[in-house]
Amino acid sequence: MMSNSMSAKVQWLDGMKFVATSGTGHSVVMDGNREGHAPTPMEMVLMAAGSCSSVDVVSILEKTRQQFVRCEVELEGKRADSVPAVFTDIHMHFKVYGKGVAEQHVERAVKLSADKYCSVSIMLGASVNVTHSFEVIEA
């Protein structure tokens, strides 16, 4: 049975670079400088929301046997002008490529992710205006 707790460790490397290691042993480097050598923590939040939603959308589309070959999500985050520069708005635009992919299945998958499954996006939605859109591209 899986536990509801998670753990992580963040260690300073040099400058404003840090390595974060998940409790499952996976590491990622982050950089506090916007022009740094790795994503910033806020970029990681945006990427986490997109990854979490994408897992749901792909999983739901696979269950509905849609013939898709690619799924990507483009994210745009707007931040407050003052400190703390939190996200005020996040927009996710899904692009699903495939043969005869039904728009209603993509719409349903995006909606289910947004409203029910994506813990990152739903958690952010408590304080951020999170919006979604999609397009289906014949490939």
Results as ranks from 00 to 15, higher is better:
Thr21Glu: 11
Ser54Ile: 09
Val58Ile: 12
Cys71Gly: 06
Val86Asp: 11
Lys111Val: 07
Gly25Tyr: 10
Asn129Gln: 08
Met123Tyr: 02
Ser3Phe: 13
Ser133Phe: 01
Met47Cys: 08
Val130Gly: 00
Thr88Val: 11
Lys9Leu: 14
Gly77Ile: 00
Lys99Asp: 14
Lys63Gln: 14
Glu35Thr: 10
Ala38Glu: 05
Val58Tyr: 02
Ala85Gln: 15
Ser121Ala: 13
Ser22Lys: 08
Lys111His: 13
Val29Phe: 06
Asp89Thr: 03
Ala8Ser: 12
Ile122Cys: 00
Met92Asn: 09
Glu76Leu: 06
Val29Cys: 08
Val130Ile: 12
Gln67Pro: 15
Lys63Trp: 09
Gln104Met: 08
Ala8Leu: 15
Ile90Ser: 00
Gln104Trp: 08
Gly32Ser: 07
Met47Arg: 07
Leu112Asn: 07
Ser54Gln: 06
Met6Leu: 13
Pro41Ala: 05
Val83Gln: 05
Lys63Met: 05
Leu112Arg: 05
Leu61Asn: 08
Ser113Arg: 00
Val120Ser: 11
Met1Arg: 07
Arg34Glu: 15
Gln66Cys: 08
Val73Glu: 06
Met44Tyr: 01
Leu124Cys: 04
Val101Ile: 07
Ser53Pro: 07
Val73Thr: 09
Gln67Cys: 04
Ala80Lys: 11
Gln66Ile: 09
Tyr117Met: 11
Leu46Phe: 02
Ala49Asn: 06
Met16Cys: 07
Lys78Ala: 12
Gly50Arg: 00
Leu112Glu: 12
Met42Leu: 10
Lys95Asn: 13
Met1Gln: 10
Glu72Trp: 07
Gly25Thr: 06
Met16Ser: 13
Ala20Met: 13
Arg70Asp: 15
Asp31Ser: 03
Thr40Gly: 01
Pro39Met: 10
Met123Val: 10
Ser22Cys: 02
Leu13Ala: 05
His91Gln: 03
Asn33Asp: 14
Thr64Arg: 13
Ile122Phe: 01
Gln67Ala: 14
Asp14Ser: 14
Phe68Gln: 05
Ile90Phe: 00
His91Tyr: 08
Gln104Asp: 15
Ser27Ile: 06
Lys95Gln: 15
Ser5Asp: 15
Glu107Arg: 08
Pro41Tyr: 02
Gly36Phe: 07
Cys52Ile: 08
Glu43Leu: 04
Ser54Asp: 07
Val55Gly: 03
Val130Tyr: 04
His132Phe: 15
Glu43Ile: 02
Gly98Trp: 11
Lys9Asn: 14
Pro39Arg: 01
Asn129Ser: 09
Lys78Thr: 13
Ala85Trp: 11
Pro41Leu: 06
His91Asp: 05
Asn129Asp: 08
Phe87Thr: 00
Gly36Glu: 12
Val45Cys: 02
